[in-house]
């Protein structure tokens, strides 16, 4: 028996694959490195960070910084802890997203399924409000909220923001693509307008709702200007504006709270990321088994 020497087939390097990967790796590094730098600063003391800047070594301060970020309050009242701001942000994000979806769906339902005079005009009026973002109308909006006694309340935080041309537009386009026979079949089956909406239209729109929820939750979570205007009590602060309250400059004998601020920023990133990841699988599922 002779030994046949085993020679592995020479694997040719395919340059195109290599190039593809290089691009992908560069792209992910570009996105990840800032996050990693933030993560690193949360593991060291602020003194070390200010002396040496970002380093490769990982320190042992993660736990301390986490506690400071979550439970330490920086204001006078002691109410704006990370935890309470996290809760406020979650309420804002959820209320904002759900409110916009509910109002958008109902407006689109009225526009598409009911024979109204001036329905098209109404739609375009709603649509043109896209040209008037909050920043343009912030003073009147504030005045109305103030006169309605909505300052420093969740209602005031959410309600003035939830009328949504974007959601109305997307749901309108979606509803128009639903076959008309479905409405007729439901009418013959004895489903009134409300029944049809709840039993047929809402379940059919679930992929659309998921997509809207992703967009609107992140949008609501990141609101900065309106919460800054409408909330003056520290107990009502949201995360995005709360981070700004932390000491971030050298002033007097204060060292900037790098660890705590970065930790809070990381915490602020997590819920939107979680929402995207969770609803994305829904979204894809809905797209692949399309059954409209």
């Amino acid at each position: 028996m002779t030994d046949i020497p085993y020679t592995p087939a020479a694997r040719r390097i395919r340059w195109s694959v290599l190039a593809d990967h290089a691009v992908l790796i560069a792209g992910s590094l570009f996105l990840l490195i800032p996050l990693l730098v933030m993560l690193q600063t949360t593991t060291t003391t602020d003194l070390e960070t200010i002396k040496y800047g970002p380093q490769l070594a990982i320190g042992d301060q993660l736990d301390d910084n986490f506690r400071a970020a979550m439970f330490k309050a920086s204001g006078f009242s002691g109410q704006n802890t990370g935890l309470s701001m996290l809760i406020n942000s979650t309420i804002l994000g959820l209320g904002f997203a759900l409110g916009k979806i509910v109002i958008g769906m109902m407006a689109a339902y009225a526009l598409v399924y009911f024979r109204m005079r001036f329905a098209t005009l109404a739609f375009w009026l709603i649509f043109t409000t896209l040209l008037l973002p909050l920043e343009v109308r912030i003073l009147p909006s504030y005045e109305i909220a103030q006169k309605l006694n909505l300052l420093n309340s969740y209602t005031g935080l959410i309600l003035p923001l939830i009328a949504s041309a974007t959601a109305t537009f997307f749901f309108r386009q979606f509803f128009r693509a639903v076959p008309e026979e479905l409405v007729e079949a439901a009418r013959i089956d004895g489903a009134g307008p409300v029944r049809f909406f709840i039993d047929v239209l809402v379940p059919l729109s679930r992929t659309m709702i998921a997509a809207m929820f992703i967009i609107m939750f992140v949008f609501g979570w990141n609101q900065y200007l309106w919460p800054t205007m409408i909330t003056t009590e520290e107990g009502m602060y949201t995360l995005v504006r709360g981070i700004k309250q932390l000491t971030q400059d050298l002033e007097g004998t204060n060292i900037p709270e790098y660890g705590r601020a970065n930790m809070l920023a990381l915490i602020a990133i997590l819920p939107p990321v979680a929402v995207v990841i969770f609803f994305q699988s829904w979204f894809v599922k809905g797209l692949t088994e399309s059954d409209k």
Partner: peptide, 20 residues
């Protein structure tokens, strides 16, 4: 009289089944 109260049933060309 509303379609639902006419005591009729209808079969549509594209079936119009509720997909969900």
């Amino acid at each position: 009289v509303d379609p639902a109260d006419r005591d009729i049933a209808m079969v549509f060309q594209n079936y119009a089944l509720y997909p969900h």
